[in-house]
Computed example of a mutant assay.
Amino acid sequence: MNRTAILVDGAFFLARYRKVYGERDAGDARAVAKTLFGMALEHLKAVDRPREQLYRIYFYDCPPLEKSLVKPISGDSVDFGRTGAAAFRRELHDQLRRQRKMALRLGRLAERGEWQLKRSAYQQLREGSLRWDDLRDEHFEPDMRQTQVDMKIGIDIAALTYKKLVDQIILVAGDADFIPAAKLARYEGIDFILDPMWQGIAPDLHEHIDGLQSVCPRPF
């Protein structure tokens, strides 16, 4: 029996979730976890027993920011560990741990204790619809980035491939960082499918995958 592993870039999935489903259930960790599992089964709907063909779902993410920072404009202090976003992330990770055939892979959140201008605010400044004097706290976000996530995805793809645990890998992601791992898997005979959740991809990415398939509703 052919077996399929589904690997999900958590940050990408959550960003696309809001674009695909709007705000519907976006703050409900249980609903989001259920949707993720449903997407996995949707990829396998062509077979008689999709749950048996599913080897495992891997979800890659980072723990939420758990420290206090001083806002750049007002000077007020904000404890990010007490925000709704942090509570949602913790609850989502807990829900995922409870899901059958789910493996949660957590990286690290590297932050410098500084703030950076949001991309949307930067664009408004360029367009002239926002002036520098009008900048407020909400136009900034903590300067942080995920680490170890891409490495964990690559290691898991290699392990699944070399140990011959699966015949197919479906990756839910939107960037090109996966290409070296995808090439390795395909070289070893693994069917490699990319699910960008209807986000456009660069034309040259098609040569590094065996198929492109999005199973979530297409956003308008």
Rank of each mutant, 00 (worst) to 15 (best):
M1H: 02
R3W: 03
A5F: 05
I6C: 04
L14K: 12
R18P: 00
K19N: 09
V20H: 00
Y21L: 10
E23G: 13
E23H: 09
R24K: 14
G27W: 13
G27C: 07
V32R: 08
A40D: 06
L44I: 11
K45H: 11
A46D: 15
R51P: 02
E52Q: 14
Q53G: 04
R56I: 01
F59W: 05
C62Y: 02
P63T: 01
P64V: 02
P64T: 06
P64S: 10
G75A: 14
D76H: 11
F80R: 08
G84M: 03
G84I: 06
A86T: 00
A87Q: 12
R89G: 06
R90K: 13
R90F: 03
L92N: 05
R98H: 05
R98W: 04
R100C: 05
K101R: 15
K101V: 06
A103S: 14
A103M: 13
A103Y: 03
L104D: 00
R105L: 10
A110Q: 10
R112M: 08
E114Q: 11
E114W: 04
W115T: 09
Q116H: 03
K118C: 04
K118V: 02
R119P: 01
Y122I: 11
Q123E: 13
Q124M: 15
R126Q: 14
R126Y: 11
E127F: 04
S129Q: 06
L130F: 07
R136G: 12
R136W: 07
D143C: 09
Q146G: 12
T147Y: 00
M151H: 11
D156Y: 01
L160S: 02
Y162P: 01
V166T: 06
V166W: 08
Q168F: 02
I169N: 05
L171T: 02
V172W: 03
D177K: 09
D177I: 05
F178W: 08
F178P: 00
P180T: 05
K183D: 15
E188P: 00
E188I: 00
L194D: 04
P196G: 01
Q199K: 09
G200T: 10
G200W: 01
I201S: 01
P203L: 07
P203M: 11
D204A: 13
H206D: 04
H208T: 01
H208N: 12
G211P: 07
G211T: 07
L212F: 01
S214A: 04
C216W: 08
P217N: 05
P217F: 03
P219C: 11
F220H: 09
